[in-house]
Amino acid sequence: MPRSTWKGAVSFGLVTIPVTLYAATEEKDISFRQVHPADGGRIKYKRVCEVCGQEIPFAEIGKGYETADGRMVILEASDFNELPLPTAKQVEIVQFVDADEIDPAAYDKAYFLKADGPGAKPYVLLREGLARSHKAAVVKVALRSRESLALIRAHGDLLLLQTLLWPDELRDGQFAAPREDVAASPAEVDMASMFIDQLTAPYDPSQFTDSYRDALEQVVAAKLGDTPVPEPTTTSEGTGEVVDLVAALKASVEAAKKRREAAAKAG
């Protein structure tokens, strides 16, 4: 079982559900060390105080908040534990919404909610109510030294809490939109729709793997002498200049058909 992230209660009207929060995701990435290429030695950094010049052990490093005029406020652990913030230990449901009302760009981190002690029955009640109504609960919760907006929704047998970015944390992406005078013809849209139809299938995440991580692990194994050096993969880079979009999309549709037929035979 992973380490818990937060412990408190969810307030569902007059019903209180004691819960513990656990991270629902973990990153599977390859980590690197900063090294000196000449001898493979690791690069180390010292934490030095800019005032006295002393090296400070990590356990003695505190948290300071610098004001706009340059003053520094030193915060103690008790300052964080005793914040005058209702959401520090209590999550109150303030609204129910359709989950598809939320911009997917606002989703941040996912957590499993686990019922504690007498919380199992009201936990199931909230889970079943959300599942039947196809709604999600909007809440505010204080996690990792900050307050977040979040959704609680049914996820199989579990309740899942999904933190959301605040509105002012979402950038306006209008700068990336094509010029208004750029348009696609009906024939081009029809052909694009045919290509989408050819590649439409039920989503099965188990069919996808991290090819970059796999390739990097092959390179590492080869450098250790465990495997032969892998052949580099060559890809054709497009210029972005397509003279006939309909012809290009038609060729894409035919290629997609052949891939699906080959996959069906292999399966």
Rank of each mutant, 00 (worst) to 15 (best):
A105V: 01
E217I: 08
Y65F: 10
A105G: 01
S11I: 11
S252E: 00
Y203M: 12
S185C: 05
K121S: 09
E147N: 06
A131I: 05
E92A: 08
P230K: 10
A201G: 13
G8M: 01
V220A: 10
D204F: 06
A251K: 12
G41P: 01
Q162C: 06
L165S: 08
I56Y: 05
E101W: 12
T87Y: 02
L199A: 08
I17Y: 07
I61N: 05
A192P: 04
D29M: 15
R259P: 13
L14Q: 04
A68D: 13
V182E: 04
A256V: 00
A247W: 07
E27C: 03
D204H: 15
M191H: 07
A192H: 00
V253K: 08
T233P: 00
Q207D: 13
V242K: 11
R260K: 15
E66Y: 02
S252D: 04
Q95A: 15
F112L: 08
V189R: 11
R259W: 12
E241Y: 10
I61S: 11
R144Q: 15
D116W: 07
G119R: 02
R144K: 15
A176N: 13
S236P: 03
A192S: 01
K250Y: 11
H134D: 13
F112W: 04
D103H: 04
I56N: 07
E180R: 06
S193M: 15
A115E: 04
Q54C: 09
A192I: 07
F112Q: 02
M72S: 00
F96E: 06
A88N: 07
S133K: 08
I43S: 03
F195E: 03
A264D: 10
V229N: 05
L160Y: 02
R3V: 14
D39H: 03
R153T: 14
G70E: 02
E128W: 08
D103S: 01
D190F: 09
V73S: 11
L224W: 11
E180G: 13
A215M: 14
R3D: 10
A266P: 02
C49A: 08
